[in-house]
Nucleic acid binder design. Structure first.
Lengths: 145, 145
DNA sequence: AACTAAGTGGGAAAAAGTGGGAAATCTGTG
DNA sequence: CACAGATTTCCCACTTTTTCCCACTTAGTT
């Protein structure tokens, strides 16, 4: 399971090292896609298979949302990239994804169960502050559903 | 069952020793997460499995499609850490968790049935005073529900 | 007072993260 | 098609952080 928060730097060559604790689970190749909210999602190949299968199959359940579905899939698939992890655990983030979330020198790498999220570190800490305040509320809400 | 209150110091390397009475039950590895209210939760791996299963409904659907779910998972998983207990019973508290609850030199370790809570010792004693005053009231409330 | 167990502190080795050079590849131009 | 310049890839090296192990101190027990 991928958990925890790590702040790493992005060097001039656009490289960023994956936290050592994530490497075993991530394997050698990963899929990086634009995420929801201002972040990127990183999936293992295995997880990506699951995700893409579910996204494409959900037509059956969500047929009334077809146009939305198409657009969402364009969003997720169209900008996804397969990226290799180098011998010492670093990846290259494509420029178009970097720009999308305003990455500059440092990024926050967040393990969220079955994916890694990449955030501008400042945006991350701000959004966490906001979320921590709501956490109790959210917990109750999810607890009831 | 984990019970009791212990005040321990946190050294310059961010280490804190688990009370000897907790060690057998905690095992070799634990999960430490932000708690609700201003404390951290420490779970055994077994307990964490239960907790995380309840938190994510990733078996049934994609965990990232609902905004509330995303945010709560970021909070619970993103700021969790799997931590080993060293040969003499100490753990390392990640900085981002330490900061969150304002830990400095000493912490209160509280056994609460199936988890351990970590508090800033001063915050703990204050909140205890407050709670003891309400305890009777709280009991009635819970008895009625 | 000696012994044991629990908690605290610190040094040395190992690992993780960061930076940078050189070879290889790509791009565009004459 | 050859070449220069730029970009990418691969590898090595440095620095910082983490991990592992050992030793000291305190408190409670016999």
């Amino acid at each position: 399971m991928l958990i925890g928060e790590y702040i790493h730097t992005i060097d001039e060559k656009n490289r960023i090292s994956m936290p050592a604790k994530f490497r075993k689970e991530l394997g050698k190749k990963i899929i990086i896609t634009p995420g929801l909210e201002k972040c990127l999602f990183i999936f293992t190949l295995k997880e990506w298979e699951k995700v893409s299968k579910k996204l494409s199959n959900s037509n059956t359940e969500l047929s009334f949302l077809k146009a939305d579905q198409r657009n969402f899939n364009r969003y997720m698939f169209g900008r996804a990239a397969e990226v290799e992890i180098d011998s010492i655990g670093r990846i290259l983030i494509p420029d178009f994804l970097k720009d999308r979330i305003g990455l500059k020198n440092t990024a926050a790498l967040i393990g969220v169960e079955d994916r890694v999220e990449v955030w501008n570190d400042k945006v991350w800490s701000q959004s966490q502050e906001a979320i921590s305040k709501q956490a109790g509320e959210l917990a109750e809400k999810l607890g009831n559903s």
